[in-house]
């Protein structure tokens, strides 16, 4: 598949828009459908698409294993960290009201970071599972 000109050109055209859509779903999730989980999956799908057309090794250069594994844990830690930030500022665990001077602004801030944490973990997990599945069998040749 790596020599198919049409697929390569179409992929090159589509992938920026898929990534842009992932960012849109992430940041517009407060106002329309979407949110962290969907955004993470769509971003992972863009990288998987890239890997399908250009090969796993190229994709691993763009999004290295080390970064993916860091994302796996970083998202959960960010989410849990928001909870501890609420504790440190005098509220309950995962209480967003205390995150800013204005309670509504605090809610907004909390939801933003929590969704970011979900997106990072989901994207990392999807990519890691894809990498693990496709790397099998190929190293043994």
């Amino acid at each position: 598949m790596r020599h198919d000109l049409v697929l390569r050109v179409i992929a090159k055209l589509l992938i920026p828009f898929i990534l842009l859509f992932a960012v849109y779903v992430q940041f517009h999730g407060d106002f329309g459908p979407g949110g962290g989980f969907q955004a993470g999956v769509i971003a992972a799908a863009a990288v998987i698409f890239y890997a399908l057309i250009y090969g796993l090794d190229t994709a691993r250069c763009v999004v290295p294993d080390r970064l993916v594994e860091t994302m796996l844990a970083a998202g959960v830690l960010l989410y849990a960290g928001i909870g501890f930030a609420g504790l440190a500022l005098g509220g309950n665990y995962l209480d967003y009201f205390v995150l800013a001077a204005d309670p509504v602004a605090g809610q907004h801030r909390g939801i933003f970071w929590v969704e970011a944490g979900v997106a990072i973990t989901v994207c990392g997990v999807m990519l890691k599972i894809f990498y693990m599945f496709t790397a099998r069998g190929r190293d043994e040749d």
């Binding site: 949110g35 909870g83 995962l94 967003y96 809610q107 909390g110 939801i111 969704e115």
Partner: peptide
């Protein structure tokens, strides 16, 4: 009014049911 987020799904997921 409580969260400033018009999408109730997001508000419930991330805030009301944060745990």
């Amino acid at each position: 009014a409580a969260t400033g987020v018009p999408n109730v799904v997001t508000a419930v997921l991330a805030s009301y049911r944060g745990f």
